[in-house]
Simulated scan of single mutants.
Amino acid sequence: MGEVITDRQIVAVLRPFVRATAPVLDALREADPLGLRARAAEAARKGEQLAELANTPPGLRRRLLNGLSTVKVPGTGAWETMSPDERTRWWINRVGRVTALLTSVPGLGGALADRLPVQDALGTASQGLLLCAIAGERGVTGHAERVRLLAWVLFERDVDPRLAAGDYPEHDPSDEDARTAELTAELGEDTGKQGGRRISLKGFAVTLWRLGRSLYAVTEELEKRPHGRFWHQWLGMLPVVGMLGDYLGERSGLRRVAKRADQWFIRSGFTARTGG
């Protein structure tokens, strides 16, 4: 057996991780690397042009514009009216598909890849990123609170609030700053404008890899994270098709993460914010 990993070691790893997720999530919301908001804007532009045509029936024009106003992506009016649960489902179903795909790539190697910590590291990083997004939709913005959330959901640890806040002798703020900067090195500079930081799909993949690699210090804890069903793991052991099994397993794991997060919000006394 390896050396027992302490709560302090967990916190030392999670604090820069949690801090690094903030600009990543901002980039996903504002810079739109997945093209969701850009497609919505383009559809709106074309729809408005069509609606301006003189021969467009009033009923069709009204239905068209009403439909465009319900496009649910961050930064739209429809997003502001969504409940926290609806926003959580959006993160899991839209962004979660991309993170699950990136995480499942090692599954091409079948059982051989399963012996390595790469997939668990990437999977834990993906789940941690989505947990921080869910926390934001619930109004949980403090780093210490998010550290405790991730420790409880991913590692089954009930971390002391003071410890999660970095209140321990070995805590080095400058070292934490440096590690956070390293994790977000692939993000573009903050322009200070509405566009915020910029991140490409490649940059997002590299950042996810760096977030996963930062968890190697607690490798023995990574298997505790929520996984998919047993048949996902069985399929994942097969060469080539293992990627499909791993993808489905990661998607299932993300749904379990969301359910465990709900339990933590309730037991920690956080009430859901309403939309609008």
Rank of each mutant, 00 (worst) to 15 (best):
L222H: 07
K193P: 03
N66M: 14
T141S: 15
A217G: 11
W79I: 06
L238E: 08
G136Q: 09
G249S: 08
G228S: 05
W152T: 04
S104P: 08
Y216Q: 09
T219R: 13
Q9Y: 11
A121S: 09
A12D: 07
N93P: 03
F155S: 01
D190N: 14
R197Q: 12
E42W: 11
G109C: 13
T70N: 10
A43S: 10
F17E: 06
E145W: 00
W264C: 07
R260C: 02
G195R: 05
L101Y: 15
A165I: 00
D167V: 03
G228T: 04
E189G: 06
V241T: 11
R146Y: 05
M237K: 07
V98F: 05
V140H: 00
N93A: 12
P84I: 09
M237H: 07
V105F: 14
G35T: 04
A40L: 13
V118C: 03
R61K: 15
A185E: 15
V241S: 13
R63C: 05
G75P: 05
R148G: 03
V4I: 10
V105E: 10
A40G: 10
L130K: 04
A41P: 10
R273D: 03
D26M: 06
R260G: 07
P117R: 06
A135E: 00
A261H: 04
R115T: 07
G249R: 01
S174G: 04
G269W: 07
D172W: 12
W264L: 08
V105A: 13
A121R: 02
E186T: 08
L36H: 09
G67K: 09
G136S: 12
T81N: 12
T70V: 11
L150G: 01
L150K: 05
D158W: 10
G212H: 01
G276D: 06
R256W: 11
I5N: 11
L101N: 10
A113K: 02
L28K: 01
A27H: 10
R267F: 14
R94N: 13
R251Q: 12
T21I: 05
R255P: 00
E86I: 06
E170A: 14
I5S: 09
L215Q: 03
R19Y: 08
L254Y: 01
Y216N: 08
R179Y: 12
Y168T: 06
E250L: 06
L25V: 01
E186W: 08
R138M: 00
A181E: 15
D167A: 09
G228Y: 00
S174A: 11
Q233A: 12
D246C: 07
Q49C: 10
G123R: 02
G96K: 02
W152P: 04
Q263G: 13
D85V: 08
L222K: 10
P33Q: 06
L208T: 11
R39M: 10
